[in-house]
Design a protein around this nucleic acid. Sequence first.
DNA 1: CAAAATTGGATAGCGATAGTATCCAGCCAA
DNA 2: TTGGCTGGATACTATCGCTATCCAATTTTG
Lengths: 211, 211
Amino acid sequence: MKISELSDRSGLPVQTIKYYIREGLLPKGTATAATRAEYDGRHLDRLRLIKALREVGDLPIASVQQIVAAVDDEDIPLHELLGTAQYALGPGAEPHPEDPDWRAAREDVDAVVAELGWRVLPNAPTRDLLAQAFVALRRLGLPIVLNDLRPYIEAAELIADHEVGALSLDEDRETAVQTAVATNVLYERVLLALRRMAQENASALRFDDEG
Amino acid sequence: MKISELSDRSGLPVQTIKYYIREGLLPKGTATAATRAEYDGRHLDRLRLIKALREVGDLPIASVQQIVAAVDDEDIPLHELLGTAQYALGPGAEPHPEDPDWRAAREDVDAVVAELGWRVLPNAPTRDLLAQAFVALRRLGLPIVLNDLRPYIEAAELIADHEVGALSLDEDRETAVQTAVATNVLYERVLLALRRMAQENASALRFDDEG
DNA sequence: CAAAATTGGATAGCGATAGTATCCAGCCAA
DNA sequence: TTGGCTGGATACTATCGCTATCCAATTTTG
């Protein structure tokens, strides 16, 4: 397969594909001559994955880079990779350990996780992500009580159990990983869209009828 | 309050505050002299809202602009504004009505919404958002069945009912709106963080124990 | 076979986004 | 009264994610 065909089949401009190769998102084709290289179906799959992560998942190139690097690293066992890939999924929150507000929020997060008995690594970036939201809520005068969190926790468990249960590890590694990453990112979007729709619906029910 | 005090209290550089004023995110202070203006608590509140939307919600300036414009427009009734503000919340998906894949996905979305009996406007951008995810999943060879969607729908309803029920319309308009917008955006982050944690937990339970 | 088109690889440029930095008067507080 | 803030305007910068151009080598086509 030539690069132009890859372009046609993926729907991405040739220049963009070259750019992805430069950035290490896509491996080079196998060179057959000084100005000729051959691409195969795996290049196309990879390209489709990148496209989905970029256009739907809205991930920056750097995150896609980390993900494909993890996918390509055969040493990482598959289930660990599911975590690794997840850590690469933005948006990332920088921790501010010197800020007392931030530290307090971070302690709240750790307390919640402990309370739930969840097995989440102590240094997992998701803890910072949640802490960041807590800080912002507090600063806006909207402190969080565990009770407000209940429905979100319940929802999260519901979804995660379903998702992890649905993972199939029988296929070959590359396919399994790409599928896992893609579903993770894409169903995040699905969830957000459904939440907004459900909000609109609930709002309509509450205000159009009784208001 | 002088701009430097606004800067200190909000944690944003003076130059950034000036930029936000230029961009219409923040109203000017009331001028007391050619080179003097006075800011008040509402400026500070607005600034804190902007900061939360930008840093945690990761919204582009343009979206924040739309939101504050809607907040400032007294003509928009409050519950309608909740929808309007939501529509401004990125990331937005451009519809591609000429693409048959996209149209099919969009029809699937409309069918799901109808099936659920949700009151979602026919032109709501959330429909496109969901359609976009459907297209991407299909393209990756991961078609969606209503069954896969179940847990997400259930989770979305759970959360939305809680959120819309918790809305208080008793306060003054500005406060109510800012609160509604902020909680919407910030709890989205909370949800995403919790989902990832729950995934890690479920993954640990499945693979560390039985794998 | 010759001309036209395509390719890989390298380098340069571009448009959008989100700020920073500078400058300049005018002002106010010590 | 003088030194440090202002407001307002303008200019500059950095990052991101591509695009465009160029070149020499190679196909493809007529």
